[in-house]
C-alpha cells in the first residue's frame, strides 16, 4: 500500500465522515466534495486517470455545486429542520443503521465467499479514455441512448415546470 493511497483513502473517509456528522448542511456538502476528491485520488492511485478526473469534474464540479445551489435557493425552513438536534435512537437513524449493516454484511459475505471459477490470467481492465469510449459506443450503446433520452425528457420536464403558466403570463 503506497503512501499516496493511504493519504487519499484517509481524505475520502474523513471527508465523508465529516459530511455525515456536521450539522451545517453547507459544511456537509463541502466535506462531501472533499470526500469525493479523495475517492478520485484512490482512482488515480489505481492508475485510472480518466475515471479519476471524470469523478472530480462530475461530482465535485457539478453535483456538489448543484447541491449547494439548491440549498441556497431553498434556505429557510428546510435547513432549520436539518439543523434541529437529532436523537441518536430516533426511528430514522435506527432504520438507517439497520439498512447499512444489511448492505455491508451482504457485500462482505459476497467478497469473502467469492472464488473465481477460473484463475484470472488477464490483466485488470484498463479504464482509459479510449476504453471507456469504445465500451460506451459499442457494447453499451443502447443503455447510453436510453439514458440520454431519459435525461432529455427530464430536462424538458424541468423547463416546462419552470415556464410561467398561462395565467401568470397574461
Amino acid at each position: 500500500m503506497s503512501l499516496f493511497f493511504l493519504i487519499t483513502a484517509a481524505i475520502a473517509i474523513g471527508g465523508t465522515l465529516a459530511a455525515m456528522t456536521r450539522r451545517n448542511p453547507i459544511h456537509c456538502i463541502l466535506s462531501l466534495a472533499l470526500g469525493l476528491v479523495g475517492v478520485a485520488g484512490v482512482y488515480l492511485a489505481l492508475g485510472a486517470q480518466f475515471v479519476g478526473f471524470t469523478q472530480i469534474l462530475v461530482y465535485v464540479g457539478a453535483v456538489a455545486i448543484l447541491a449547494t445551489f439548491a440549498l441556497m435557493m431553498t434556505q429557510g425552513h428546510i435547513v432549520s429542520a436539518l439543523i434541529e438536534p437529532r436523537r441518536a435512537f430516533s426511528r430514522s437513524s435506527v432504520s438507517g443503521f439497520v439498512t447499512a449493516a444489511g448492505v455491508f454484511s451482504v457485500l462482505g459475505w459476497a467478497a469473502q465467499s467469492y472464488r473465481p471459477l477460473t484463475p484470472s490470467t488477464q490483466q485488470a481492465p484498463a479504464a482509459g479514455a479510449k476504453e471507456v469510449g469504445v465500451a460506451l459506443m459499442h457494447t453499451y450503446v443502447l443503455p447510453l441512448e436510453v439514458i440520454g433520452v431519459l435525461l432529455t425528457a427530464a430536462l424538458i420536464g424541468a423547463v416546462v415546470i419552470a415556464l410561467p403558466s398561462e395565467e401568470e403570463r397574461s
Binding site: 478520485a40 486517470q49 480518466f50 478526473f53 471524470t54 472530480i56 469534474l57 465535485v60 464540479g61 479514455a129
Partner: peptide, 8 residues
Amino acid sequence: LFFFAVGS
C-alpha cells in the same frame, strides 16, 4: 480532462 476537472 485534468484541466477542466481542476478548473471546476
